[in-house]
Nucleic acid binder design. Structure first.
Lengths: 161, 161
DNA sequence: TATTGTTATACTCTATAACTATA
DNA sequence: TATAGTTATAGAGTATAACAATA
């Protein structure tokens, strides 16, 4: 199935949603930029905020990214004062990445904004449509999951054993 | 409003949807990679497929990206045989970027897949929930648009005149 | 003088490979 | 021998700035 996210901007309602979401994201990234943050680095902060101090190895797994990449992201976040590297108490090879005061403050604001956004998006929607929206989205999620399983279930139909 | 797309993976249903959509996108990007395509380059092809031959300047505007960036994307697509640069008939400064046969074939497949995906995602959803989903999404779109207008309406509240 | 596209330069995100210090 | 994180290197996407050719 050939498909790109950015391409989804040309049909029906989901496409309109994605188009608006992209505008919204651009605004948000601009705001993050003022704080010296990028999307990738913010994602690291978010993971730390919700999971607590973490080794870089664990971060690499959660972010689905190489350890080398994490080194760079943490370097940037350390230079801008959002995180701190500390020795791991039990394993002298490993490093514990921890949010600084500054990092914690920003993430608390982001979590609050995130929750407020979810409320705000749903405000004024009557219960019937809200139920339909929920069930419809879950339906779409299940269909997508099925498509993913289907695609991955056929292992390399290109001939490579 | 502090916010990142990748962060939206931790609340309610929209977050689940985005998480699944990301998995789906990863699969699709892998498939694009087999064709020597990336997301950014595919987006160029998509615009050309739907808008016809275009100058690089126009592409830069549509993609919301710098002209320099377009140069690089078109270089890549030209090297892999998806597009062709041709002189502009009326303006000797400009270049017309055109899909090659290969580019057209790929985009036709993508458009077909895209339409089939939209159908597939909705299949089996009863009319009531489908109506609720539609109205709910439009509601969310309008709320997002309102938030964007609101944020942009206040011009630089940081003090810069 | 303004516009189109390019060269030059730089930064971020990402990846692989080789290496160090530790388990 | 395996694991955590680093240095080295590379490629894609993005940006700004300076410049050539053309309007």
């Amino acid at each position: 199935m050939l498909f790109t996210m950015s391409v989804l901007q040309n049909t029906v309602i989901l496409d309109r949603l994605l188009a608006v979401a992209q505008l919204f994201t651009e605004d948000s990234e601009r705001e993050l930029g003022k704080l010296g943050l990028t999307t990738a680095r913010t994602h690291v902060l978010w993971v730390l905020h919700h999971g607590g101090p973490s080794t870089q190895r664990a971060l690499a797994d959660v972010l689905a990214v190489t350890p080398r990449n994490v080194t760079g992201l943490v370097d940037g976040l350390e230079a801008t004062g959002y995180v701190r590297r500390a020795p791991h108490p039990d394993d002298r090879r490993a490093v514990l990445v921890t949010l600084t005061e500054r990092g914690t403050v920003v993430m608390e604001k982001m979590a609050a904004d995130h929750a407020a956004l979810a409320d705000s998006l749903m405000a004024g929607l009557d219960d019937t449509d809200r139920g339909g929206l929920d069930r419809g989205l879950i339906h779409v999620i299940h269909r997508l999951e099925a498509l993913i399983v289907e695609a991955r279930g056929t292992p390399e139909q290109d001939g490579a054993a």
